[in-house]
């Protein structure tokens, strides 16, 4: 399905405001086919940030996130064993981030989608914790509310979050989607207590999957929904610009970009549907195989995702 063209906006690097950037990838919406446009990813010469330029205007938000978008309904019913495994791994990760939190901790999930992570904390975390989410999409908010979660519709900088009140905030695969990362980080910093932490997980452009597929098929591009993609340097600079202290910066295992890079290449090379379907979020075999590969790469410090722990000092 080819659809209407989007209104596009030209932008500069959101980390260093430079526009000295080189094209690295060109491609289409290989997953949802939401627009008739071809998109260009460029890399900033100063900080290494990879960003979509031009990118869809924010007015096209609902168009580029169709109702079938996976973050709106990542359910056990639809994703079966993959859901179960991911839920277990993510719960383990989340709880490790929360291990030093006080009994009455207040936790914020920014870009919570359908409430997947908050729901895990609700299930496996302490009952005394206060859990809140924020998401820009009303469909996602509705899904999360169905799980009994408290979710704000909007973005951290527009919903008047209370000052100095959260112990922990996290953005799991969210920062790459947002329009103004530094403004969101500043709003979160304002809402965190002194000593509070913000944990960001996002696609890593200093990875082997990026190097292999950066010409256009890389899953992390997620054309045209990922607007800013980081390496360690760019992410640290962004955080420091906002006034956060970088407590830890490392990589994390994920098979998703490997699987989707192959998926996108197969779509573009007109591979048969049964083969393409072997490389989606529902394909356990390819997800397992690339998890194994990424575990090895993680040991070399080159996992597919970046994870940074920031502290408000």
């Amino acid at each position: 399905m080819k659809s209407k063209p989007l209104k596009l906006t030209h932008v500069k690097c959101c980390v260093c405001q430079s526009d000295d950037a080189t094209p690295v990838g060109v491609g289409e919406d290989y997953e949802y086919h939401t627009s008739a446009d071809t998109f260009l990813a460029v890399q900033c010469a100063a900080c290494g940030l990879v960003y979509l330029n031009p990118r869809p205007d924010i007015s096209g938000f609902e168009w580029i996130y169709p109702p079938t978008y996976h973050a709106f309904d990542f359910s056990e019913k639809d994703f079966g064993i993959v859901y179960k495994i991911r839920a277990r791994l993510e719960a383990k990760r989340l709880l490790s981030w929360c291990k030093d939190l006080p009994i009455d901790a207040r936790i914020l999930d920014v870009g919570c989608g359908d409430g997947f992570h908050l729901n895990l904390l609700k299930k496996y975390g302490k009952e005394t914790w206060t859990l809140e989410g924020v998401d820009l999409d009303k469909r996602a908010v509705e899904m999360a509310e169905k799980l009994g979660l408290k979710v704000h519709l909007g973005t951290p900088e527009t919903i008047n979050l209370p000052k100095d009140s959260f112990d922990l905030a996290f953005m799991v695969q969210t920062i790459e989607h947002v329009e103004q990362p530094s403004e969101i980080l500043a709003a979160i910093k304002n809402a965190l207590k002194r000593g509070g932490k913000l944990i960001i997980v996002t696609d890593n452009t200093d990875s082997l999957d990026f190097r292999f597929f950066k010409g256009g098929y890389w899953g992390g591009y997620h054309f045209p929904r990922h607007w800013n993609l980081f390496n360690q340097n760019a992410l640290a600079r962004l955080a420091e610009n906002v006034g956060f202290e970088v407590a830890d910066l490392t990589t994390q295992v994920s098979p998703v970009n490997w699987v989707y890079s192959i998926h996108n290449a197969l779509v573009d090379w007109h591979a048969p549907r049964f083969l393409i379907n072997r490389f989606t979020l529902k394909s356990t075999v390819s997800l397992s195989a690339f998890t194994s590969l990424d575990i090895l790469l993680q040991k070399l410090g080159k996992g597919a995702l970046l994870r940074v722990i920031l502290r408000k000092s």
């Binding site: 063209p5 060109v26 446009d37 071809t38 998109f39 260009l40 031009p54």
Partner: peptide
């Protein structure tokens, strides 16, 4: 090229 069209913002045309 599609890359030039994308850079200028005319790929859909």
């Amino acid at each position: 090229t599609n890359r030039l069209a994308a850079a200028i913002g005319v790929s859909s045309e």
